[in-house]
Nucleic acid binder design. Structure first.
Length: 490
RNA sequence: GCUCCGGUAGUGUAGCUCGGCCAAUCAUUUCGGCCUUUCGAGCCGAGGACUCGGGUUCAAAUCCCGACCGGAGCACCA
């Protein structure tokens, strides 16, 4: 086969490789791929942001191109940026192994946008419009130009300068891009490029009053940065159509665009950054890294591996359907990676004291990991703790095994007393336990808090992901003198 | 209402450009079994989908038409 048709063999191989990663990008010849992820830093990055970060950076990597992180932070009113969030994005990118080759902050490049705005006005491609929004809407619906559309450029420039100087109040004037007032699609008729917002911007303060809309700012930036491929939400489909008018006015070539549908995590339902922010400020959550939240900060704190999240989003790819994926998929992926690393420990939730008759003190030698010959030593007096869940299923006369310690026969339930058995039997239910001198453990989970007791060595695992046997994986978040706080992974 | 986009198992996803090798890939979930001094781990196995109708064709998940269902935009939000 190889001899007869080497090309065919090569082609087949390519096809197989493709399955593993992202689909190929449509490419112009000799083109250097430049991708961007352009969030508004009005909160911490969520799983949705992770998709953008990962897919864009992965494409850049696939083609030896460039990945740009651009902060589209030009709305100081409705989507007001958060000063801390800029750095958070940088941290999250680094964590996801997606460090940007370049970082651009739109609010620091306002003068650039003003230049292009002026150039467009001079070309007769944009005009200052004084129509109140509802008045313009009726013009738009009737497909007729508003009176300001035909004003000469000298007067237009003057109005524009006044806009910049703050002569007008909010909503008094906007700069519109000329498109086609007769366009079939009302969304495309003379859209707004700048509006007046006399608000303080967390980064540049009150320096500017005329702010570009996303459509304008991102159109200019995408060209200036040499973006070759844009992936954006399909709700922004119209954006492209609007921006194309601008590109035509300026004689620019529009990047290739791909659209993707909304992604929703079944467990979290709908969440918007603004909504999260409100709730956090209201104190409903402990912060942006509260384990109940779908933020990257929270997932990191819970001990998710960045590779897991990368693989997850690469496997989902770029499709236009709206999807609702379950965290279970992410858990399954993460479990594979984490299982090999995590040391095992005992933790019992809602502990119940079990008295061992005839016992003085015991020493258990327990495996740290089933596939490694490392041990942890657990000492206990003649009482141990078992979990409330196991206790609820216990009957007098039953034999159980305290893992790595001994087999016991339950003699009575109330009080809970057991007799140590010398010869171990087969097919005995095996449960975990905690020693009499155990340490208090609090586990913060997405769906609540568990309290219990664990073996003291847990305190030595600060920052690590470990497995609490028969419970789940957790990351040891903080170690206090008498208490350990763990975040539940899955 | 107008404009547009999409529909492959419970959930994601591959295949669609260029029809045949598709009785449709992979993962996850579910179910069954096995193993083990843990498990929500591991191993083995099973189940489960081309929205519907018509057309083109020797041949349709793939091309065409229609219906249905779902989603989006029509903002001085991103």
């Amino acid at each position: 086969m190889n001899r007869i048709a080497p090309d065919l063999v090569a082609e087949l191989k390519v096809k197989e490789e493709r399955k593993a990663g992202l689909p190929e990008l449509p490419l112009a010849k000799d083109e250097k791929v430049v991708m961007r992820f352009a969030p508004n830093p009005n909160g911490a990055a969520t799983l949705g942001s992770a998709r953008g970060i990962i897919v864009n950076s992965e494409y850049a990597r696939m083609y030896g191109g460039k990945f740009i992180l651009r902060f589209d932070d030009t709305d100081p009113l409705l989507k007001r940026p958060m000063l801390e969030a800029y750095d958070w994005y940088l941290e999250d990118c680094a964590w996801l192994d997606a460090e940007p080759d370049e970082v651009v902050v739109a609010s620091e490049r306002m003068d650039l946008y003003y230049e292009y705005a002026e150039a467009l006005i001079k070309r007769g491609a944009a005009y200052v419009c004084f129509c109140p929004a509802d008045v313009f809407k009726t013009y738009k619906e009737q497909k007729i130009p508003c009176p300001h559309r035909t004003v000469g450029d000298v007067e237009n420039i003057e109005s524009w300068k006044n806009m910049l100087k703050g002569v007008y109040e909010e909503k008094e004037a906007v700069l519109r891009i000329k498109t086609d007032m007769a366009s079939e699609d009302p969304a495309l008729r003379d859209w707004v490029a700048f509006r007046i917002l006399k608000r303080e911007h967390p980064r540049v303060g009150k320096k500017y009053v005329a702010w570009p809309t996303l459509d304008f700012e991102s159109a200019i930036e995408d060209h200036l940065l040499g973006i070759t491929h844009i992936i954006r939400g399909k709700d922004l489909l119209k954006s492209e159509k609007r921006q194309r008018f601008l590109y035509d006015h300026l004689g620019w070539k529009y990047p290739i665009t791909m659209l993707w549908g909304k992604i929703k995590m079944q467990e979290f339902g709908k969440f918007s950054t603004s909504e999260l922010r409100k709730r956090i400020e209201r104190g409903e959550y402990e912060g942006w890294d509260d384990p109940r939240l779908p933020t990257l900060k929270a997932l990191r704190r819970r001990g998710f591996l960045p590779e897991t999240i990368r693989k997850f989003f690469i496997s989902i790819g770029v499709t236009q359907t709206d999807i609702a994926v379950s965290m279970k998929n992410l858990y399954a992926e993460n479990r594979k990676a984490v299982d090999a690393l995590a040391s095992r420990y005992f933790f019992v939730r809602n502990p119940k004291e079990l008295k061992l008759k005839d016992g003085q003190s015991f020493v258990a030698k327990a495996l740290k990991h089933p596939s490694r010959k490392e041990y942890r030593v657990i000492r206990t007096g003649n009482t141990v703790y078992i979990s409330g869940d196991d206790f609820a299923k216990l009957n007098a006369g039953q034999r159980i095994r305290l893992k790595f310690l001994c087999d016991v026969d339950i003699e009575s339930i109330e009080p809970l007393v057991a007799k140590v058995v010398e010869t171990p039997a087969k097919d005995v239910p095996i449960i975990q336990w905690a020693p009499s001198e155990g340490i208090k453990v609090v586990v913060k989970k997405p769906d609540g808090i568990d309290k219990g007791i664990g073996e003291p060595l847990i305190a030595s695992e600060l920052g690590n992901v470990v497995q609490f046997e028969r419970y789940g994986f957790v990351r040891i978040d903080s170690v206090l003198e008498k208490e350990v706080v763990a975040y539940f992974t899955h």
